[in-house]
């Protein structure tokens, strides 16, 4: 049984869509900054294989870094990722088979990637590890490691919170079984000198994460600090603290536009940024320079991209860049 579309519906909808189509007041997100840069002519093929989740804001910035470097150097950069170490190892093998001029790998689970990384090194491909796997980087034959030490970053947060007089902290973990996240919480605990309790939430269900943090704050009124390990959870924690009427201070690892805004507004104490853009960008640049000129920065010492603290003083400037997906 087929009915014709009611005429009145079209009569209402079409003008509504047309009249209201382009009012610039709505397009608050239309981007206004584009990272500049010329284009070099190195024409190398660089393969990047990370463990980052596809919808993760942190890794989308790393990816943006590799792509910007590719544009600036005139290299062609491919980016693949898979959180499962077995699959990531397969992606590395696939990349090596295409004989790239350089390989960038993040090693969240170094043991599982050992064989694949060694195969790349044996094939004569220069490898740089980024973000995770600093301890194993050298022994697997990588040129250097670019990243931020999670424990050091955690300790920086712990120290800063202690200075603010915080004693009882919940550390909100958004991915079960991620070693780096546990290291961050442990780092916080090292320097805080008070209580640190881990709270497990799900990054794919942020409204639930908010309710869980709220529940924790309601249950234990003595909690005076909340540390989140990812930018997306941080904004939900902010809402939870407001909802619980708690005066807990909030600090987070990693950065996005919402976090920068909250720091500017004073709703968040500070954010620890490990500058993911640099991890991606520098890796491609360094591989290019190694290939062209055999340069290795610092003679192969690990290059630290963080931790830098984003506080009220510098948040406003960072906020502008954040919207473009590079901070």
């Amino acid at each position: 049984m087929i009915r014709r579309t009611p005429r009145w519906l079209a009569a209402v909808l079409v003008p509504l869509l047309l009249v209201t189509a382009c009012s610039s007041a709505n397009s608050v997100n239309r981007p206004h900054n584009k990272a500049g840069g010329g284009s070099g002519g190195y024409k190398y093929k660089i393969a990047v294989v990370t463990h980052g989740g596809t919808g993760d804001s942190f890794w989308s910035i790393v990816k943006a870094g590799t792509q910007q470097a590719g544009k600036d150097m005139g290299d062609s950069v491919t980016y693949q990722s898979d959180g499962d170490p077995t699959k990531q190892s397969g992606l590395i093998d696939a990349a090596v088979n295409q004989k790239p001029d350089g390989l960038v790998v993040s090693m969240a689970n170094p043991e599982a990637l050992k064989a694949a990384v060694k195969r790349a090194v044996d094939a004569g491909i220069p490898v740089i590890t980024i973000n995770a796997g600093e301890a194993q980087s050298k022994s697997y034959g990588a040129l250097t490691h670019i990243g931020s030490d999670e424990t050091v970053a955690g300790q920086a947060v712990g120290t800063e919170l202690k200075n603010q007089g915080v004693k009882n902290v919940i550390c909100v973990v958004q991915e079960a079984g991620n070693v780096s996240l546990e290291q961050r919480c442990a780092g916080v605990k090292d320097k805080l000198g008070g209580t640190v309790t881990n709270l497990q939430v799900d990054n794919n269900n942020l409204p639930a994460a908010q309710s869980l943090i709220l529940a924790k704050l309601q249950q234990d009124k003595s909690i005076d600090g909340v540390v989140t390990l990812g930018a997306q959870v941080a904004t939900k924690a902010e809402a939870a603290i407001a909802g619980a009427g708690s005066s807990a201070k909030l600090a987070t690892f990693d950065l996005n536009a919402d976090v920068a805004k909250a720091v500017v507004d004073g709703k968040m104490l500070f954010a620890v940024d490990q500058q993911p853009f640099l991890q991606g960008y520098l890796a491609v640049v360094m591989l290019t320079q190694y290939k062209a000129n055999l340069n290795v920065l610092g003679g192969g010492q690990p290059v630290l991209t963080g931790p830098t603290l984003i506080t009220k003083d510098n948040a406003a400037a960072v906020l502008k860049l954040s919207a473009g997906g590079t901070r």
Binding site: L13, L16, T20, S23, S24, S27, N29, R30
Partner: peptide, 15 residues
Amino acid sequence: MTTYWGLNVYASLVA
């Protein structure tokens, strides 16, 4: 549709 393309918020809801 709203924050990037500038469409009215109710129109984007319908769309």
